[in-house]
Design a protein around this nucleic acid. Sequence first.
DNA 1: CACGGATCCTGATGGC
DNA 2: TGCCATCAGGATCCGT
Length: 271
Amino acid sequence: MPELPEVEVTRLSFAERIAGARIDAVLVGKPLRWPLGCEVRNLLGQRVLAVRRRGKYLLLDLSEGLLLMHLGMSGSVSFGGSLPAAGKHDHFDMVTSLGTLRLHDPRRFGAVVYASGEDDPVAQKLLGRLGVEPLSEAFDALGFHQLLKGRKTAIKPLLLGGQAVVGVGNIYASEALFLAGIRPTTKASLISKPRAARLHRAIQDVLVNAVAKGGSTLRDFSNAAGEAGHFQLEAMVYGRAGLPCRVCAAPIKSIRQGQRSTFYCATCQKP
DNA sequence: CACGGATCCTGATGGC
DNA sequence: TGCCATCAGGATCCGT
């Protein structure tokens, strides 16, 4: 569920409410992708100063450290003053003076990791190789084109890799390539400067729109306050195999790239 | 180093 | 309370 828009919508839904909270208790459930990396008692008494985002990570600035949260494939966060008792898929509860922050993650590809700060090797291992933020000034069309020129792989799996740009996942990669009119199988190195500029713009547009709409989901995404997203009502290609293209009515195609499904319109998107 | 594939885990869905 | 195969929003690790 969580690509950049969902993570950002989640962040916006609880960042202000949790700011200043004192951590009173932490309950861990089944193991997540990586171990917490510290004793629970090290967290107690610390304050949550702010919540930031880097790629698909949520970064909770604590008074003496940093908590990195990742939602994996199936994770969601809730924050509130009266959450129900932890269920079988609630694997991290942080009870604070302002409410409980809970990570719900059936598949457990998500993680909560403690680091002393962003320079901590633990944090660097997770954040150090991430590409540029797509909604920041640092994401520029020329630099993006330069990066594509050096890569032989197909553009769609490259977008998922997180080295050229972070935050674009399987849904928005297909959507952005549709908006840009580029076939997902096109070798990155063969994309011309104007087409790279179009893709650069499409990535920003699709992500900004998704954040504005409250995040997507094919199923059950909701933010930390329990409100659902609406993007699925407007997907141009994702999940629409065999259905008519919303622009030209040709049937949307579905293929596999790197074990992931890709959707595109063979008419609107050129190799 | 760049690339493709296997892998972690649980649940939903659809064919039989 | 049927069983089995397939697929699902991510990202790392391991060969080549």
